[in-house]
Nucleic acid binder design. Structure first.
Lengths: 221, 221
DNA sequence: CATCAATGTTGACACCGACAACATGCGATG
DNA sequence: CATCGCATGTTGTCGGTGTCAACATTGATG
């Protein structure tokens, strides 16, 4: 420790100008980012609180000033994921006007989110939580992914484009399909199929259409 | 298998009689069983090679005589799961004669397997493997779950009960649906829905039917 | 400028995965 | 039946990890 009395920002800054400060500035977010990057690069088994702290440039106990334990950090990652997923669904649905087109967009966005952000998706739905995860904080006016799916399906029902009756079974079918497709992608169970993003998008497009054929009302259109 | 030799048959009382023996008899399977029980009781985070050894009544290094490392033990659990899943699918399909009924049975069995054996299902499809998992040893003449699904769908296509054309997209749709439903169940994402086995069975029944409505050929029947 | 609460550090403890060296006893061989 | 090799289980150890307590530093508040 060279210049003890000084700011030491200039002394041992390993990279950006932010480094080397004793108070990190936004260590909490830095830890979340480091955790995501670590999972993406080294896999889940390499996710270590100490390595996360190392990557954030702090010592091994610093994370405990922001998270009660390792699981709390994972919870923050999951919350970030749920918010991002809902956002990406809204964005992809926004240009669409037809109820069915909006449903397709929602399903495609769900699968694409998983393919584009495997670490988030795994943490969100993986078996890594002992205590039940708290629901993610939703900024007011923003719907969660599930709520969005329900309302989209009910809108399509109201337009006569999907089967009538309870929306719940239809919602579960749609959710199961995109969740299963996303899971199979992320867990690399689709070995022979191409793994690229564009391939996933094409697959999601085909599958959502194929699904809706079953959700259609009996009367043929 | 029966004429495997004398082995340990004399003192193989599984209860307490065999405690204190220096050679366990079938420690390998005992470790697999202990791992499954541990995951079921304490969750995934509690899965420790040392605790597994403790439950099997051996010391902390004994497992290394049967598994190269922790991941190898998990691989054994996964293999057991894949074999059991295929078996349960075959059993549920056996009484069915109609191609569609066989497809329904396959899907229901897939979901039920996950609900009845969450630890196996999680290990099979979870993010816990760094190296690619070897394919499970399939006893000769027995098809794996995926192969079974493909042939069932192709049979239904041949009978004119499903859309014509490539079987692969249809297979992926069916697989995604049941896998998604199973995953949502196992990961407790269906909070409001009842969690019992009979509820899962009813749900799987409805969902597979709902799916097939979409897989049906355009001509109405 | 003095103080304080928030934030980061140091040190410690129990536990874990993995390996090496050693001990035991099953079962093949004579 | 006696011997002995080797698979199997044990003991001891090492580096790494999650978590906590005590201490140090800093930015903000008066």
């Amino acid at each position: 420790m060279a210049t003890r009395g000084k700011r030491k920002q200039a002394a041992e800054a390993p990279a950006e100008k932010d480094r080397g400060r004793y108070h990190h500035g936004d260590l909490r977010q830095a830890l979340v980012d480091a955790a995501v990057a670590l999972i993406a690069e080294e896999g889940f088994g390499a996710l270590t609180l100490r390595e996360v702290a190392r990557r954030a440039g702090v010592t091994h106990a610093a994370p405990y000033r922001h998270f009660a334990d390792k699981e709390a950090l994972l919870e923050a990652v999951a919350h970030e994921g749920f918010r991002a997923m809902a956002r990406e669904m809204r964005e992809r649905m926004a240009p669409m006007t037809g109820p069915l087109e909006r449903l397709y967009a929602a399903g495609e966005a769900y699968v694409l989110f998983a393919v584009l952000h495997p670490p988030h998706f795994r943490v969100m739905f993986g078996p890594h939580f002992t205590r039940p995860m708290s629901s993610p904080p939703e900024p007011e006016g923003e719907q969660g992914a599930f709520t969005l799916l329900v309302s989209t399906i009910e809108a399509a029902q109201a337009a006569g484009l999907l089967r009538e009756g309870e929306s719940r079974p239809l919602t579960l079918t749609a959710w199961s399909l995109v969740h299963g497709l996303a899971s199979l992608f992320v867990d690399r169970q689709l070995g022979e199929s191409p793994q690229g993003v564009e391939a996933a998008e094409a697959l999601a497009r085909v599958q959502t259409r194929l699904l809706v054929e079953g959700l259609r009302p009996p009367a043929r259109g």
